[in-house]
């Protein structure tokens, strides 16, 4: 094999990912999708017995909720919003003329009520808050959604549109921190069961700008975010394939998630970057899943 060939090119050549002409925006083959689907089955096997409520939101969310979430404060560089043509017939003529002349036709597009979902759990908090007070035992939710982050890259493990599976726990501080610890332990076991080398490390979100440096340092100082790292594109710089996040009562306070007595709920989430995990498996075991080690195949395909 030519070592100069990039991982992305190898994935294209093998037909696992399909080029679209935009960095970080790819089609997936049936083989690729099968790996993701089997891995999702493994996630459910670990977490399914706990009775999480399954909710599947589309990859767009209510723009008003997106604004309330404060995403633009922290990650304006990653956000995506949906814009559409909202003009009259004359505007349409001008639009076509502009496109025909190679002009910037997107300038006249207007914002819709939809923002692209940046993480699978973002639409959940306002949804649960709307239901009213939480029961004393809190809630547990099973989510999966395509997510968008504007960060074009030729590293296949940094895609602009990718799927995130999540379990979210809303409850007391004790319940949500225990939930996070349980999943950190399970995450390691799970990855080892499919032959992946993992390490867990404290982490921070990619907050924007100098102010963001401080938010990132605060997040690390308080051990709010951990990531499970697996080598994908580089052994020296392994890729975050899972994250374990404790939000304290920040989302509870922001969205009004509270118990019947009025006490604000704490929240935590565990997320899987499904494409990243599939890529880690392809890199570790080869591009043909039929040739993967028998124990790995048994874990995933039974």
């Amino acid at each position: 094999m030519d070592m100069q060939t990039s991982l992305l090119d190898r994935l294209f050549d093998a037909g696992l990912l399909i080029e679209t002409g935009v960095d970080g925006l790819y089609g997936r083959s049936g083989v690729f999708e099968d790996v993701i689907s089997r891995f999702e089955g493994l996630i459910s096997a670990y977490g399914g017995a706990e009775g999480a409520e399954m909710i599947r939101f589309p990859p767009g969310m209510n723009r008003a909720h997106f604004e309330t979430s404060g995403y633009m404060k922290s990650f304006p560089q990653l956000a995506g919003t949906v814009h559409s043509f909202c003009g009259c017939e004359l505007d349409h003529m001008n639009l076509l003329k502009c496109i025909d002349e190679g002009g910037d036709w997107t300038k006249t597009q207007e914002a819709t009520d939809i923002a692209l979902t940046p993480a699978a759990c973002y639409p959940l908090y306002p949804t649960i808050a709307k239901r009213g007070p939480l029961p004393p035992e809190g809630g547990l939710y099973d989510l999966q959604s395509y997510c968008f982050r504007h960060e074009p890259s030729t590293d296949p493990d940094r895609q602009q549109m990718f799927r995130m599976r999540e379990y979210v726990r809303i409850g007391t501080q004790e319940a949500v921190t225990e939930f996070r610890q349980t999943w950190m332990d399970r995450g390691v076991k799970m990855m080892e069961s499919v032959g992946l080398d993992v390490e867990i490390d404290v982490a921070n979100d990619p907050f924007f700008g100098r102010a963001g440096k401080m938010l990132a340092n605060n997040q690390r100082d308080q051990n709010l975010k951990f990531e499970l790292l697996i080598p994908v594109n580089s052994a020296a710089k392994p890729t975050a394939c899972m994250s374990f996040n404790y939000h304290q009562d920040a989302f509870g306070a922001k969205w009004g998630l509270a118990f019947a007595g009025g006490e604000t709920c704490h929240t935590a989430c565990v997320g899987w970057g499904l494409e990243r995990i599939a890529l880690a498996l392809f890199v570790r075991h080869g591009l043909d899943p039929k040739a993967w080690p028998a124990n790995v195949r048994k874990t995933l395909w039974g």
Partner: peptide, 8 residues
């Protein structure tokens, strides 16, 4: 955290 950033 956010207020500390604004203060900074």
């Amino acid at each position: 955290s956010f207020a500390s950033v604004q203060l900074m």
